[in-house]
Design a protein around this nucleic acid. Structure first.
Length: 899
RNA sequence: GCGCGGUUAGCUCAGCGGUAGAGCACUACACUGACACUGUAGGGGUCGGCAGUUCGAACCUGCCAUCGCGCACCA
């Protein structure tokens, strides 16, 4: 026999990069827009150019790759379109930080043009990192169609969209309260504000009514640093405590001297705090609205960077807002106005990017009134876009129901500059691509990055590509961007393509660490996927991820799972190695030519079942199940049972072959039948596993000789494009034949299991072969030579004999569906231990019997239960009863030995 | 406050009306010619609690507890 050419252990690092290069070289991932095959397309959610690969990306892109590869295998022309997102704030921040560090300059020192050059330089250098990392994962993207949100054509489209929506009256400019990030110094959308529980202090202070000396009002605030911007105190007009004071005045205690009125407004909650609200229209949304209703003046005491300005008064000007808060508290105390300070926890909106509290701030911005909101809602309600899992529909619907206008302008430089032009005196604005002429100045602001990515599904494609591949088939993304991206893309698709941008949306889970914390850079709890790939292989990482990725559930990452992925790859490798040791594989075995042994029929049937379940799981995006089906079938059905059961025949026939070359013996025929079965199943299995573990499957496909021609010039040379396995492998056999082969094989396997258990219970050493006596259940059930041989091999039997006589007294037995199996050796068995074993077993059987009988004795049960269930319970009763009787008989015999 | 999701073996999770499951971890045995990234066998769970529906509930209904998320509230 020849030594295998396959190494003993699989080393993915030797294999994976090679295959990726071959796929690329042969153009396997390039989508042909002229193809007549049905289209399947995915646009990759563009990662930030600043990004490096995280486990979240691994999960997300593995899912997409699985879908893309599966679609190729099922005859689709596949486009998986990759790209990156310019990530306005994040990228600008990164480059500014570098500039500060390396050149000790700010962007303002450079000026806009020079700064943008720096960003582009940075992008060219680092922007591709994440995409290269995805290649290492094995992602089958069409790299020739890679897009970037700042590409020239794409940028133009973004600006044209702005102009169009402006013309339609959906985009307007206005002075409004917005979320201001003092660190990034830009406005943000509502979605970019993350509420966080914050421990602070609630300051209670009192003010005296000017018109009524001696009457004091107590006010509670968490933000005393805005007292200088207060323009009124508000009470609820229905509040009997304070209503009479409406129209009176108090002195503003901090900042420039002023008298401010007490006003009545229903927005004030009587039961909250002291029932008196200080009104700061410049620094609070609710206060702003109250201010509008009462025509109150607006005093803005804060600079864009969060420091206080001159309107706050000399004492406070220049202080940071948090310093000012402390100082304001102190001043109130010095003035004798501070009643108390109490610890207080409230929700504060934080900037998503800079992670600092945002400031509500009045500023002039561009806003979008969302288009097609009704249609977008209806599309999901009517399942024209299907969400997986569907519970996200509710979240989506709720957001659209309460949708607010979107602040789309950002005070940044990196991004799509707004195509609006101000006249020199700033009295006029023109919205258009090119400058209207001399003296017109372009609006300095850029658009929210999401205002560009909401066009991603259709504007990444040129017209021909779009014709073939748009709308896309499925979007795979995280639920955290359901508003940011998914909803907006649906609206943009409806507005600009009159189509829904995707048929299905699959929401992944969020990856957490073992303690359930979100993976984050600052916690340092995110393993580097490239390290994982180096250790376990991309295939191992991918498979491991899939096995722990429950649909729509957050994922607790555990490296052990990746270890298992690697182990599985090794298992597959070695099973292939075993096959290789048996001789050359045939690429197209004809199973109908062989007389298939029962174990082969069983395996083929199990493969069919698995294949069917797999198809169903794909249709429902149940990836964990897909991985589980493949794993269980291969490790259990194929390796643990089939290969082991085939070994005796394979070994015997091989010896035989050495002696007689001429005539084919029965054994020899059986050997070929088994090998053909293995070839069919291995080829089919590699095919089905390929989307999850693309590299190792291509490698084995080639090495085992399933690949028909040499070379890797074109698509057809790869497993990736190979014909899928047949659905019906056993069509030439009658269903009865299949059923009986399966029943007898599974009964045999279960008898082997019982026998092994018996050995173990009897404390027989694992390597010691023992004699077995088999008493078939009845005359009808007999054991075939094959069955005896397999039993003997797998249960480590020495002499295995069929006996219809009563077994010797000193023996241990177990009852199986194929009869009673006995280990007869007197010296081997400790009768006392055996007695105990039987006693426990009898107790268990009695308990089971009682359970079934209780049910069957219940008249209501017998009356109402479906016939099939009733039948099943009756059979169960008989089985347990038989077993009980046999066990009692064995025990009786043992007593005669012991006494 | 409203909504969503989770709570099943020590851990990570399946199962979602008819005899409680997998992998890992653990225990014992075995380096026999595919694989120690292995094999064989085993122990371990009143399926968060209470009540209800049902012949029958981990599974359906209601309430409660607890953890997480989203929205609202942010004096």
């Amino acid at each position: 026999m020849s030594l295998s050419e396959l190494s003993k252990a699989y080393t993915p690092t030797d294999v994976e990069p090679l295959w990726y290069q071959r796929w690329i070289d042969a153009g396997c991932f390039h989508a042909d827009e002229k193809s007549s095959a049905p289209a399947f397309s995915i646009v990759m959610p563009p990662p930030n150019v600043t990004g490096v690969l995280t486990l979240g990306h691994v999960l997300n892109n593995t899912l997409q790759d699985i879908l893309a590869r599966r679609a190729r295998q099922t005859g689709h022309e596949v486009l998986w379109l990759p790209g990156t997102d310019h990530a306005g704030i994040a990228t600008q921040t990164v480059v500014e930080r570098q500039l500060r560090k390396e050149e000790k300059k700010t962007r303002h020192d450079l000026g806009r043009t020079a700064f943008l050059e720096k960003v582009w330089e940075w992008k060219k250098k680092h922007g591709g990192i994440i995409l290269e990392q995805l290649q290492r994962l094995g992602c089958s993207c069409d790299w020739k169609r890679e897009r970037f949100t700042m590409d020239e054509a794409y940028s133009k489209k973004v600006q044209e969209t702005f102009i169009d929506l402006h013309q339609k009256g959906m985009i307007y400019r206005g002075k409004r309260m917005v979320n201001w990030c003092p660190v990034s110094r830009t406005a943000l959308s509502d979605e970019e504000v993350i509420p966080k529980k914050q421990k602070g202090i609630l300051y209670h202070y009192k003010l005296e009514i000017i018109e009524q000396p001696g009457t004091w009002l107590e006010i509670a605030t968490t933000r005393p640093e805005t007292i200088m911007a207060d323009v009124a105190l508000a009470v609820n007009p229905n509040d009997p405590r304070y209503a009479p004071l409406i129209g009176k005045h108090v002195h503003r205690p901090l900042g420039p001297l002023a008298e401010i009125p007490v006003i009545g407004d229903e927005a004030v909650e009587m039961t909250f705090g002291t029932g008196i609200l200080k009104v700061t229209p410049a620094h609070d949304k609710v206060d702003y609205e109250i201010g509008l209703r009462h025509q109150l003046p607006i005093i803005d005491v804060m600079n864009p960077d969060g420091t206080l300005n001159e309107f706050a008064g000399e004492e406070f000007a220049g202080l940071d807002r948090f310093e000012a808060r402390m100082k304001a508290g102190e001043r109130l105390r010095e003035l004798g106005l501070l009643v108390k300070e109490e610890p207080y926890e409230n929700n504060v909106g934080f900037s998503e990017r800079a992670d600092v509290p945002i400031e509500p701030r009045l500023s002039e911005q561009w806003f979008l009134r969302y288009p097609k909101t009704k249609e977008a809602r209806a599309a999901v309600q009517q399942h024209l876009v299907r969400f997986f899992p569907d519970r996200w529909e509710k979240v989506y619907d709720h957001w659209l129901e309460h949708i607010q206008d979107w602040c789309i302008s950002r005070q940044l430089w990196w991004g799509h500059q707004i195509p609006a032009w101000h006249s020199a005196d700033r009295s006029e604005i023109k919205v258009q691509l090119e400058s209207p002429g001399e003296g017109w100045i372009q609006d300095p602001d850029v658009l929210d990055t999401w205002f560009s990515s909401w066009l991603w599904a259709h504007e990444t494609m040129d017209e021909v590509t779009r014709k073939k591949f748009y709308p896309t088939s499925v979007l795979v993304t995280g639920p955290d961007i359901i508003f940011f991206w998914v909803a907006r893309m649906i609206m943009a698709g409806l507005e600009y393509t009159y189509a829904l941008p995707f048929r299905d949306v699959y929401f992944t889970g969020i990856i957490r660490d073992k303690q359930g914390r979100k993976m984050s850079k600052s916690l340092g709890n995110s393993p580097n996927p490239l390290d994982l790939i180096a250790t376990y292989g991309a295939d191992g990482l991918r498979f491991g991820m899939m096995r722990i990725a429950p649909t729509g559930q957050d994922i607790r990452f555990d490296e052990q799972q990746i270890v298992e992925g690697r182990n599985f790859a090794n298992k597959v490798w070695n099973a292939a190695r075993f096959r290789e040791m048996q001789g050359t594989c045939s690429p197209h075995p004809n199973l109908a030519e062989h007389e298939l042994p029962d174990i082969a029929i069983t395996l083929l049937s199990q493969f069919e079942t698995m294949h069917g379940a797999l198809k169903k799981a794909y249709a429902e995006y149940r990836f964990q199940e897909i991985a589980g089906l493949l794993y269980d079938f291969f490790w259990g059905d194929y390796c643990d049972w089939f290969i082991e059961a085939a070994k005796p025949t394979l070994a015997a026939s091989q010896q035989f072959k050495l002696q007689v070359e001429v005539e084919e013996s029965e054994k020899q025929k059986e050997r070929f039948a088994l090998l053909s079965t293995m070839d069919v199943v291995l080829a089919g299995f590699l095919h089905l596993l390929h989307p999850l573990m693309p590299h190792i499957t291509e490698e084995l496909w080639e090495r085992l000789g399933f690949k028909e021609k040499s070379g890797f010039a074109e698509r057809a040379d790869f497993l990736l494009y190979a014909q899928p396995p047949q659905e019906k492998l056993l069509a030439h056999l009658s269903p009865e034949k299949i059923e009986s082969a399966k029943n007898s094989t599974l009964a045999l396997y279960s008898a082997i299991h019982a026998a092994r258990n018996l050995r173990s219970e009897c404390k027989i050493n694992a390597k010691q072969a023992v004699d077995f006596l088999i008493t078939p259940k009845d005359e009808i059930t007999s054991w075939s030579p094959d069955q005896l041989e397999i039993f003997s091999a797998l249960a480590r039997g020495k002499n295995v004999t069929i006996s219809h006589e009563a077994p010797p007294k000193e023996s241990a037995s177990v009852i199986t569906d194929l009869g009673t199996i006995t280990i007869p050796l007197a010296g081997l068995i400790d009768p006392v231990a055996e007695k105990n074993r039987l006693t426990i077993e009898i107790k268990n059987v009695e308990a089971e019997l009682l359970k079934v009988r209780t049910k069957l004795n219940n008249p209501a049960f017998v009356e109402k239960v479906p016939a099939a269930i009733l039948q099943e319970h009756r059979e169960r009763e008989v089985r347990w009863q038989e077993r009980l009787e046999s066990l009692q008989a064995m025990l009786g015999k043992l007593y005669s030995v012991l006494n």
